[in-house]
Design a protein around this nucleic acid. Structure first.
Ligand SMILES: [Mn+2]
Ligand SMILES: [Mn+2]
Ligand SMILES: [Mn+2]
Ligand SMILES: [Mn+2]
Lengths: 223, 223
DNA sequence: AATCAAAATTAGTCTTGCCTAAATATTGTA
DNA sequence: TACAATATTTAGGCAAGACTAATTTTGATT
């Protein structure tokens, strides 16, 4: 799996992985939004990736793309780099979880396999990054994710936060200020069916959270 | 000094700095060799850098280039990144001095000022990298270098090794195997004026070193 | 002063990855 | 079934940075 893959291609593959993780096809528009690029540029790149020597994506005009086995390996390699880097920035350099994303976004493309191995070992081969996201294993397998969105819980259900699917620093700081971070136990005490707000108890405090937040927090282990 | 400077430009500036550090002009050919690029490419890039909004280099056709004040700041920024990274790879991830150059060569262009500040602080603001090279200060001043090449010493002169000006991993491993690393005390016991070999004593052992080695080891403080 | 080799520059191409504008395909709905 | 809105693709361009081949400049040597 050694890389002749450009930075740009690595980012395409990573985002295609994320958009197709649950069996969907990634649309040109969704990719354009994720990559901050115009749809026409996505079409161009996708056509190139699809016609590469060993194709990195499977593509049919107007239908969207998925990754080939080769493309998936390359994507998982980048994702592993990203998540190990985030973990390591937090644990060894004192970054906070709202600061790491941007730094990792650049570093992920330039570290060697040697570097990856050394930080993984130094961290004790972690399985989750600071946001609770699962880290692909060294052999590029993505562990199964058992969690469900907090939004799907209803009053009297308790659970523990597994991961927070967000990179926006403001949102992350806000969540931290409420104590909504991975590992924390929470309980839903109220649900408003019109706006889908949930009232969530953390320790002694309760907060009312809208769907745009509860859909980004993933929990497990409701009692 | 924030960067709109591409990776490629950063490498040009860094190498121009190194080639002009002692007052010379950097020639097109020397730069081409240093950057592993054809001379025609160097001419093209130099002309662009010379005609940039605030010019990064001063250039006259066929005469060679030097850095402007702006260009020098940008170069020192990259060099500071490189040398802090090398130091940090050795001290916190257990890299050896022959392994760090290549990794730092890529990382130097993508770390943030925040990252630079954090590793500098974590390392206690070091002034030399693992090869003994001086690290530009945070305000981008290069400390004065008092050292002279080992090649200039003669029998009965003693000195301590300050820095080793080499990146070739094989050479670095060889020097380490001889105990020729920064901080080590040495003494010259013989000189051969025909081939310029020096016999150098380190601890109990002596080795005969050719000019291609003694010109890359810099020493200070002969007693 | 004339000559010549080495060094440097110019001219013209190529690749990568993006863009805008225009054309076309798909889809959901009337 | 047909139309309009939406999504996607095509066509044509541009900027960076590299390359090769051809040409010019420099500066040493006769
Ligand atoms: Mn990235
Ligand atoms: Mn993360
Ligand atoms: Mn570099
Ligand atoms: Mn060094």
């Amino acid at each position: 799996m050694s890389e002749l893959l450009t930075r740009s291609i690595q980012d395409y593959l990573k985002h295609i992985y994320e958009l197709t993780e649950h069996g969907q096809l990634a649309s040109t528009n969704d990719l354009a939004r994720a990559l901050q690029v115009k749809p026409a540029s996505v079409t161009g790149m996708i056509q190139k990736l699809a016609s590469d020597k060993p194709a990195l994506v499977a593509y049919q005009k107007h239908q969207g793309v998925t990754l080939t086995a080769t493309g998936k390996m390359a994507a998982l390699e980048v994702i592993r780099h990203h998540r190990l880097l985030e973990t390591w920035l937090v644990q060894t350099l004192g970054y906070t979880w709202d600061e790491v994303h941007e730094e990792a976004e650049r570093l992920e493309h330039v570290i060697s396999e040697e570097f990856e191995a050394r930080i993984a070992a130094a961290l004790g081969n972690p399985t989750r990054d600071p946001h609770g996201e699962l880290i692909p294993s060294e052999d590029l397998t993505m562990p199964a994710d058992e969690s469900t969105p907090l939004a799907s819980l209803r009053p009297n259900q308790a659970a523990s936060i597994q991961r927070v699917d967000a990179q926006d620093p403001d949102l992350l700081r806000y969540l931290e200020s409420l104590g909504l971070t991975p590992g924390v136990e929470i309980e839903v005490t109220a649900y408003s069916e019109f706006d889908h707000n949930l009232t969530v108890k953390v320790g002694r405090k309760s907060n009312v959270l809208g769907l745009s937040i509860t859909s980004k927090i993933f929990v497990e282990n409701g009692k």
